[in-house]
């Protein structure tokens, strides 16, 4: 899932300055799971905006809407009516959701309400850990199911650096050393031989270094005729 964190309210108050009618737009997917962008959080943020407005005589009119998935146009279109008379949308979906909003409503100011952080997972209630760097060329089969690209502070591919001690990373005594975890995992799996093999320099083209990425599933792409038919149905 995509993990995000709240932007400070002070930053949001500043960003909506000059707008009258504000829509807080949430998403019921990842950001709801990480407790920053679901229906409940939309309500809380809208209340905060109203309170700030009342206390400071801003005269803001704040409305709320939460869609199933803000990253998909089909769901975002649902909001069509609610967005019409709005000056600004504070999107508390991830950065993907906010951009989908901007694409569908190009004349509206879409303001990010979250800081999107990473692809991670809940570790325990209220704690979310980064797991995947989306490098585009997965090597988990070589590293005992633990990703060194994001879980090692230096993205090392050939074992722990000299700063790994007592299972912790040199940058922070709270952070586990990913390569110690990889070592332990490969040991459990009886595959320590993999620790001895040199992993060659990584091809970063499938990663961010190759520019914005595009994945095409040809079997799912519609022909112009099919697109027309689909629009007719909708």
């Amino acid at each position: 899932m995509i993990v995000a964190d709240k932007k400070p309210l002070s930053e949001l108050f500043e960003n909506v300055e000059g707008c009258k009618r504000i829509l807080v737009a949430g998403c019921k997917s990842c950001v709801a799971i990480c407790l920053v962008g679901g229906e409940k959080e939309v309500g809380l943020l809208a209340e905060s905006l109203r309170l700030f407005s009342d206390l400071n005589s801003k005269g803001w009119e704040v409305s709320e809407y939460t869609v199933e998935r803000q990253c998909e146009k089909e769901w975002v279109r649902e909001m069509h009516q609610s967005v019409q008379d709005i000056d600004a949308v504070v999107s508390i979906a991830c950065g993907v959701g906010a951009q989908t909003m901007q694409e569908l409503y190009p004349d509206k100011r879409i303001l990010p309400g979250l800081n999107t952080s990473n692809m991670g997972a809940p570790d325990e209630q209220g704690i979310f850990l980064e797991k995947c760097g989306g490098c585009g060329d997965c090597i988990l089969h070589l590293t005992g199911g633990i990703c060194p690209i994001v879980r090692c502070a230096k993205s090392l591919l050939n074992g722990p650096c000299g700063g790994s001690q007592n299972g912790k990373c040199e940058i922070d005594p709270e952070t586990p050393c990913a390569w110690e975890q990889i070592y332990d995992s490969l040991k459990r799996l009886g595959r320590l031989d993999l620790m001895e093999k040199i992993i060659p320099p990584k091809n970063w083209i499938p990663s961010r270094s190759g520019g914005p990425r595009k994945i095409v599933r040809p079997e799912a792409v519609l022909t112009p005729e099919e697109k027309e038919t689909k629009e007719g149905i909708n």
Binding site: N158, G159, P160, C177, Y183, M195
Partner: peptide
Amino acid sequence: NPFADPFEFRVARLAK
């Protein structure tokens, strides 16, 4: 670094 962990891997890393 013979003093970093995991100790058992430190010689393998040298070999690498």
